[in-house]
Design a protein around this nucleic acid. Structure first.
Lengths: 195, 195
DNA sequence: AGGAGATGGTACCGATCGGTTCGATGTGAG
DNA sequence: CTCACATCGAACCGATCGGTACCATCTCCT
């Protein structure tokens, strides 16, 4: 986490460290909730270093969101694949790991969607679109392999459930059952499509 | 919309006008995307007037969100009641008006949820919680009247669908069918609960 | 040994932030 | 007519914003 004192050795290493540190703070406090000065203090880097690596605060934000999207999609995909070939088991596994995420102490919703809510401009908005599209591919794939009558429709509905559960878990879920509710709904929709 | 030049007649009238004007700009640009100076310019009021009525920018934001929550919940409730006593028709009407909302030119998601995403502090977060709770009551009521086996569960699942559709419509809905997809899912869940 | 490059720290820049104050203007109620 | 009040417009405040420049330091490579 701390950047080594003086180093000409790890240009990329430093960048990765800054990215990882900044991710957490920007998520917790919001993109506009933390200034560049405090950001540097928190990640243990100087302004010059940060600007040399990312060009601007928006550049840093973009890099953070891009990395986060990749990481999250990869994480969910792995959870699905680890559940074996059965689509029911895959959906169950997916909403279970989502539930684990929702229950983590600092959970504040989806970082990419949150960012797009805070910045109506292209970088964040575009990334959110791509992020949800990736979710959609993952979910539609499950619907197809399950033999659903309308896999594309079911995939979009599963995406709605996923995003809805994330929002509800963030803003109104006193008993922490959003993921479980969504899971049951997902399985019910799967059954209703004869799968 | 324009505030009358000089007036000792409408203390409350002015407040209502400011509230209505500010609502649109804060929604379009985000709570932190517009400063108080520009806000005043846009609503056609001076800083002094604004601060006398609302005390602070956060005070204005809180008043705006409170009014918006009341208005939206009342609007959805009316749409449901206007659909007659049949729960299927009520759900259909609800997601249809949501679809109309999603298709409006300046649609940017739910203002209250967006605000809570931008401000992690009590005023906005609390209002979002209450806002979703109100949605939940409306939806659970439909589930009960439909004779669902588990109306509370179904109500929560319908809330997930509503919020999910709103997020998807905002960030990734190239063909504008989020509301329709959610509606079909809602009716399917209703049927699956024997209602 | 020495040069090149990455870094931390700090001072600094203009712009904007939320918020306050003041005077001028116009309105309504007495 | 007069007084109280609401309002506008603008000046002003300290703080913070994103971003730049400079320099001493440290590590690696030659």
């Amino acid at each position: 986490m701390p950047v080594p004192k003086g180093t000409a050795l790890d240009p990329d290493r430093t960048r990765a460290t800054l990215l990882a540190s900044a991710t957490g703070i920007l998520y917790e406090r919001g993109l506009d909730g933390v200034g560049v000065a405090e950001l540097c203090r928190a990640v243990g880097a100087s302004k010059e270093t940060l600007y040399r690596h990312f060009g601007s605060k928006d550049g840093l934000v973009e890099a953070v969101l891009e990395a986060r999207s990749d990481r999250v999609v990869h994480w969910l995909t792995e959870a699905v694949e680890a559940a074996g070939p059965d689509p029911h088991a895959q959906l169950t596994a997916l909403f279970d790991v989502l539930g684990d995420w929702y229950r983590q102490p600092g959970f504040r919703g989806c970082a990419i969607v949150n960012a797009a809510t805070q910045r109506h401009a292209p970088p964040a908005r575009t990334l959110a679109d791509r992020h949800l599209a990736r979710y959609g591919e993952l979910l539609t794939g499950i619907a197809e392999r399950a033999g659903a009558r309308e896999p594309a429709l079911l995939g979009r509905q599963l995406l709605i459930l996923l995003e809805g559960a994330t929002v509800v878990a963030d803003h109104h879920d006193p008993h922490g059952r959003a993921a479980e509710d969504a899971k049951q709904a997902a399985l019910a929709l799967l059954s209703a499509q004869g799968a």
